Computed example of a mutant assay.
Amino acid sequence: YIGVLKIINSDLMKPTFSDLLDAPDDNPMTTTHLNYMMNPIIMVFDKIFDKIFPWLDKYDFDSAELNKKIGFWGSHFAIGCYLGIFVGLIGRQDAKEIFTLAFTGGVCLELFSQIGSWFIAAVEPLSQGISDFATKRLKGRRFNIGLDWPFVAGRAEIWAAANFLAPIMLIEALVLPGNHIMPLGSIIAMGVTPALLIVTRGRIIRMIIIGAIEMPIFMWAGTLSSPFITHVAKQVGAFPSGAAGHQIAEATKEGPIEQYLAYLVGKASTGEITFLLYAALGLIAYGLIFWWYAKQMKKRNAAYAAAKEAK
């Protein structure tokens, strides 16, 4: 069910990817990544902005220019260092351990974006070849290739929004009722910002505000799944030796709505009537909101096509 919707969504997003990346229509790049299944929820908030707060768009700014002005202090490395210092202070570590945490966090976040961009550049010729082969062999049908989400990581809005959302996420993690997660590697919000980019088409103020609103959904989902993740990590010997007595999870793991649905379906499989009802209602609501979102994306895609015909 979710897998089918992911494939449908990849085709719905294709014109937006081409527009944001200034790519020709015949390029095969799209994605079936679970990140983008948050699009329907984000679209709801985006439409609310259209109706109530459209005036905010005139205060939007050039995120690439902002990143340039902030310089090193807003870089991935610097954000990782801030996070390491913050975690070290909370854990009452000594100066040496705090410095080690800061440096490790900085290196990890810096490498994350670099390696992701290298990977996408490396597989792009292969994906083009596969798409051309499939199109030629299957009677002229055009096939796109579902890449991982970082092929849009070159857009500055993703990183500008992440810079703003990082401190917001830390504050929310500390005060959010029912949350038991302190963000670490997920502080760069890569489960959040790619979908924000696609739905808002890079309007940075919308990305930041909607991102701040939706992050609790991710942290609650992470809290819900943390006992299972901790158990599995211990079973396979991957549990961190220094985290005894704690649980592990990811604060912005992609697919929070799908995690809730999986929980309901899992409970329903035991035969509990209440959870059978909840699971059925959840799956129906999930399908309906996706249907509404698909209609909005088809209107957007028709507008793209009309604009190109007018040129």
Rank of each mutant, 00 (worst) to 15 (best):
L196A: 05
M207Q: 12
F112H: 06
L111Y: 10
I42C: 02
A212V: 10
L196F: 10
I2R: 14
I257F: 10
R92I: 00
I7W: 03
P177C: 03
A134F: 12
F228H: 09
L12I: 10
G266W: 12
V152K: 03
E110K: 13
L281E: 07
T200W: 11
G140T: 02
K298R: 09
Y1V: 11
D148E: 12
I120Q: 13
F53T: 02
A122E: 12
F49S: 08
A310L: 13
A134C: 12
L283A: 15
I198L: 15
M37W: 04
F86P: 00
I70R: 10
A238T: 10
L34H: 01
K58V: 01
D46V: 13
A102G: 09
L126R: 15
G237C: 00
V107D: 02
M37H: 02
Q247R: 14
M37E: 03
W159H: 13
E254G: 11
I85A: 11
Y36A: 05
K253P: 00
A306C: 05
M219E: 05
V152F: 01
Y286F: 15
W220P: 03
G74N: 13
A285C: 12
V123M: 11
D57W: 07
Y260G: 06
A294D: 02
T270N: 15
I210F: 02
N163R: 15
F72H: 11
K253S: 09
A243L: 14
V4L: 12
G71F: 10
A121W: 06
I171N: 03
E124L: 12
I273S: 12
F164R: 05
G129E: 04
V107M: 09
R201M: 02
G282W: 08
I41A: 07
V4K: 14
W159N: 02
A307Y: 12
T223E: 03
R137L: 03
S127H: 15
M13L: 15
K253G: 08
D148G: 11
A122Q: 12
S226F: 04
W292K: 02
D19S: 14
K139I: 00
I188S: 05
I208N: 01
G140K: 03
P194K: 07
E214D: 04
A310F: 11
M207A: 08
P15N: 09
G154Q: 10
V232K: 15
A95E: 13
M215C: 04
Q235N: 07
F164S: 06
V107Q: 07
D11F: 14
W149P: 00
A195M: 10
A251Y: 11
F143M: 09
Y82M: 14
E250V: 10
G271W: 10
F228C: 04
A305G: 02
F119P: 00
I205K: 14
P256I: 04
T104Y: 07
F53W: 08
L21R: 06
T270G: 12
E172W: 14
M13H: 12
G242L: 11
E124K: 14
R155G: 00
R203H: 12
P256G: 06
I158M: 07
